[in-house]
Amino acid sequence: MTIAIGDKIPSATFKEKTADGPVEITTEQLFKGKKVVLFAVPGAFTPTCTLNHLPGYVENFNALVEKGIDEIAVVSVNDWHVMGAWAQASGGFGKIHFLADWDASFTKALGLDIDLSGGGLGVRSKRYALIADDGVVKHIAIEENPGQATVSGAPAILEQL
């Protein structure tokens, strides 16, 4: 079953690269008492993710904060080394949490996993974005096509705030 408006974000632990090295971050740490935008991509460094989806969140970081967002995070079924390198390469390091869902356990708990084996990627996350308030989903937008970032892009999320 796919997560929906009114549902609580399931418990999970991610790895994130910080200036001090890798740390574990839980959904409770990320969401408790905060208004959060979480978006997901099928893969770090993939074309749509790197050229279209992520840049909108980096560019609109201040606008999202001005609209009351406390945290912005991107999650992908990649390891923390890849996510850390992507954070550095994108200019998003220190602004956006780059969360590694290395085994897709969080993605599967949301019901948003997709098998992209045909494209050589294996099990990944669908492309989506959600707004959560204190861990409860207030808005969710799931892309029909993983090669597009329209309803889950930063401009569309800004319109929801």
Score class of each variant (00 low, 15 high):
L158Y: 10
V36H: 09
D20Y: 01
V136I: 14
V37D: 07
A44Y: 07
S125Y: 14
T13A: 02
V136K: 14
V65H: 01
G56W: 00
V136H: 08
K8A: 03
S90Y: 03
K32D: 06
L130Y: 14
V74S: 02
V136P: 03
W86N: 06
I157M: 09
L112Q: 14
T26G: 04
D7S: 01
L158T: 12
F14I: 05
G92V: 05
E59Q: 01
A132R: 07
G92W: 11
G91K: 04
E71H: 07
G94D: 08
D133L: 12
K34D: 11
N60A: 10
I69V: 10
N78H: 04
T18G: 01
V75H: 11
H53Y: 11
G147N: 15
L121C: 10
G56T: 01
D115P: 06
H139F: 15
G56N: 07
G153Y: 10
T27P: 08
K126A: 04
K67Y: 02
T26D: 03
T48Q: 06
V37R: 02
F98K: 08
T27R: 09
F98S: 11
I140Y: 14
G153S: 15
G84A: 07
S90D: 11
D79Y: 05
P10C: 01
P22N: 00
R124V: 04
D7R: 01
T150K: 13
G135R: 08
P155Y: 05
A44R: 07
F14T: 12
A4N: 10
L99Y: 01
K67C: 05
G118H: 13
H81E: 04
Y128C: 05
T13S: 09
Q160T: 15
V151T: 15
I131V: 15
G122S: 11
V74P: 03
T107Y: 10
L158R: 10
I157E: 06
A19E: 13
A156R: 13
W80R: 00
K108G: 03
S90T: 12
L121Y: 15
E143P: 07
